[in-house]
Nucleic acid binder design. Structure first.
Length: 435
DNA sequence: TCTGGGGTCCTAGGACCC
DNA sequence: TCTGGGGTCCTAGGACCC
């Protein structure tokens, strides 16, 4: 393999929404432009998104809310509980807009997409991406940055500079630039896509601090210490594409539903309710991708941040036949809870995982199988249908309870502006001028 | 007082088989 | 006292991503 970039390598763009969650909050509340904003994790526990103004105040990513309380009060930082219904819908709008510009868009995460720009090489890619950026802003209100290069990893790297260096105006095109040393030298290894905390530490010990150092490192050593994944990252930094596009997301291999509680619970009844609720959610997701589970695991634990008696446990249940039935899964899960529940602990988080997923139509039915599967499937279908039309949780299994004292906290949630007729924003003419 | 949730891939090592 | 070689499958743990 040559170290040189071949002429045939195609351009790829990475589009990344700037501070996505905070931008979503701003779209429907223009007064927030220019103000420091943070968005909280589930349960209002920690800070998972910050506007630039909040970053400048020194508020850190992943910081527990209470640690930032002082800065927040002093500088009037706006604080929001996360509102995934809103963010999911805004994400969809952004992605739909991108699809106007290329038939090949890979939705990589809620706020990022790769665009295959093969076939657009006759255009000025920088201009084209600037047009994309302006259109997304106009149609959705969301600001994005775009990096262009020969590989996904380099496009990610370019994107950082597009965002960080204001003279780039949100777009940086490194495609076809033979010598990228300046950009590699000014990127710390921890900021490379695919290099996390542990690998950064390891690399720093070897005097490898920047992307340029990494490109010049010994490939054999990289492979030995960081597996083929690490080697792949290095090759991508050299301009050799190793990561394919995934235009159609493959079915998930496991589906998890879990949550920490708004307040800890001690009784098995509450734990059971919560588990039944999570089974319901997970199996809904599973049916949406037309899978059935062979395995169900149930886990529970106390709060590891507290200095109190700790208990973590889980159980893996092999199901007699693959199933996608909520009621059947709940009944197995309840037995699981009885097995691992111990009295005397403050339970803080519980959850379930469905795994060993197989396509539903091909799942085998065992000759020992006595359940009336057809009837159960019918019930499940009706429940899904009603909940889809009337709102999730309109119909629910009694096992999930009514009081739900374990319910997640979200004291600062904005309305579902875009997905609920009752919560459409009311705008005055003045507020409607979008910047 | 107060710390998220949901995924992926790779590897080493054990179990098991011939 | 002595203790093969090679293959497959599975799982746990560790790394990463957003």
């Amino acid at each position: 393999m040559e170290g040189k970039v071949s002429k045939k390598v195609k351009p790829v763009a990475l589009v990344d929404c700037n501070n996505f969650y905070t931008s979503c909050e701003r779209v429907f509340n223009p007064k927030l432009w220019g103000k420091p904003i943070v968005v909280l994790s589930n349960n209002d526990g920690m800070i998972i998104a910050r506007s630039n103004e909040a970053k400048e105040l020194g508020i850190k990513m992943g910081e527990p809310l209470f640690k930032a309380e002082e800065i927040i009060k002093k500088h009037n930082v706006y604080v929001f509980s996360s509102n995934y219904t809103l963010y999911g819908d805004m994400s969809h709008r952004v992605m739909t807009t991108l699809e106007h510009f290329s038939p090949e868009v890979e939705i990589y995460s809620i706020d990022e997409a790769f665009i295959n720009l093969e076939g657009f090489s006759h255009k000025d890619l920088t201009d084209y991406c600037r047009l994309i950026r302006n259109t997304v802003r106009k149609w959705t209100g969301i600001p994005v940055s775009i990096g262009i290069a020969e590989t996904k990893t380099l496009a990610k790297l370019a994107n950082r500079f597009a965002k960080k260096v204001s003279s780039n105006k949100g777009v940086l095109n490194l495609y076809g630039i033979e010598n990228k040393d300046y950009y590699l030298k000014n990127t710390e290894v921890a900021d490379i896509w695919g290099i996390g905390r542990q690998y950064s530490k390891l690399l720093n010990l070897q005097n490898i601090f920047t992307a340029l150092d990494l490109v010049n490192a010994n490939e054999k050593w990289i492979k030995k210490k960081m597996t083929v994944m690490g080697l792949r990252t290095v090759l991508e930094l050299k301009g050799i594409p190793c990561i394919e596009y995934e235009y159609f997301p493959p079915a998930k291999k496991a589906i998890v539903s879990s949550r920490s509680f708004g307040q800890t619970v001690k009784d098995i009844a509450s734990v059971k309710e919560a588990i039944a609720f999570f089974v319901t959610r997970a199996s809904e997701k599973m049916r949406a991708q037309k899978s059935s589970a062979n395995l169900l695991s149930v886990f529970l634990r106390t709060n590891p941040f507290k200095k109190e008696a700790q208990y973590h446990n889980g159980v893996l249940i092999q199901l007699p036949v693959p199933t996608d039935s909520t009621s059947e899964l709940i009944s197995f899960a309840m037995k699981g809870v009885e097995q691992i529940f111990r009295i005397g602990y403050q339970y803080y988080k519980v959850g379930v995982m469905l795994s060993g997923l197989v396509p539903t139509k091909r799942s085998q039915t065992s000759i020992f199988d006595t359940e009336n599967r057809l009837k159960m499937a019918k019930i499940t279908e009706v429940v899904d249908e009603v909940n889809k039309k009337m709102g999730s949780n309109t119909l629910f299994y009694a096992a999930t309870g009514i009081n739900r004292k374990w319910r997640t906290r979200a004291d600062m949630r904005t309305p579902k502006y875009t997905t609920d007729w009752e919560q459409l924003p009311v705008v005055s003419a003045k507020e409607f001028e979008i910047i």
